[in-house]
Amino acid sequence: MAGKNESAITEWWLQRLTGAVVGLYVVVLIGLLLVHGAPNAEQWRALFANNTFRVLTLLALVSAFYHGLVGVLHVWPDYVKNRAVRAVLVGASWLAFIAYSAWTVVILFALKS
């Protein structure tokens, strides 16, 4: 089992790695917006019909959710001192991470006809 310091270092690196993944995705999206302008329905559908783009979107969004989870888990204890409220926030953050991830899979893959 990894020690506490090891897992903290892994978390530190994962936070930067996921940040870089989301950052690249955001840069590409903004680039597309700047080159093509706001998409119409057809362009939007065509973009998401591409399986590679869908998988990259899933990767970027789940990276963003994990990055956000680690972020808020570090933020709550700085402001919330009450143990019960803290526990609720930690639970809610984990639930949000899981629900967001599952929801994204449904949006990107299951809803497709």
Partner: peptide, 9 residues
């Protein structure tokens, strides 16, 4: 901005 984006999802 980070907390806002996490909740903004």
């Amino acid at each position: 901005s980070g907390v806002g984006l996490f909740v903004g999802m």
